[in-house]
């Protein structure tokens, strides 16, 4: 376990998440892609913190990332429910058509 390997794993997670976020049609699946990306960010920050400068402020940043993740999920679910209620759709493509 070195800083290089941790970052390598983190970038793998981030890339898989990016693929999901770009390619999936269903809102919830897009959110899962985003979650995976955030997992990569968490791991990268954790690794950088531990291997480069393990003082407490770095951990606070991680905590903020975690909080941001919950906010993203909660709002995402709420918007997905709203969309579903309004239009019966769960697809990003159809949501895009709404403003046309």
């Amino acid at each position: 376990m070195t800083v290089e390997t941790v970052l390598l794993v983190a970038s793998a997670l981030l890339s898989i998440g990016l693929y999901g976020a770009l390619s999936q049609q269903v809102v919830v699946m897009v959110m899962m892609g985003l979650e995976l990306m955030i997992a990569g960010v968490l791991l990268a920050l954790g690794g950088l913190w531990w291997f480069l400068s393990p003082d407490p402020s770095g951990q606070v940043l991680l905590l903020v990332v975690l909080a941001a993740m919950t906010v993203e999920m909660a709002t995402g679910f709420a918007i997905a429910t709203l969309l579903h209620r309004r239009t019966g759709t769960d697809m990003t493509d159809m949501a895009a058509e709404l403003h046309e």
């Binding site: 800083v3 290089e4 970052l7 390598l8 983190a10 970038s11 793998a12 981030l14 890339s15 898989i16 990016l18 693929y19 770009l22 390619s23 999936q24 049609q25 269903v26 699946m29 291997f51 480069l52 697809m91 493509d93």
Partner: peptide, 29 residues
């Protein structure tokens, strides 16, 4: 249930190569 599968795959591969090589090549202090 995917759209633009290839683009997404390409984008994520490029991201991985860039980030991964950065992780390995950057001289970390």
């Amino acid at each position: 249930m995917v759209h633009s599968h290839r683009t997404a795959l390409g984008a994520s591969l490029v991201t991985f190569v860039v980030l991964g090589s950065g992780a390995v090549l950057v001289p970390w202090p």
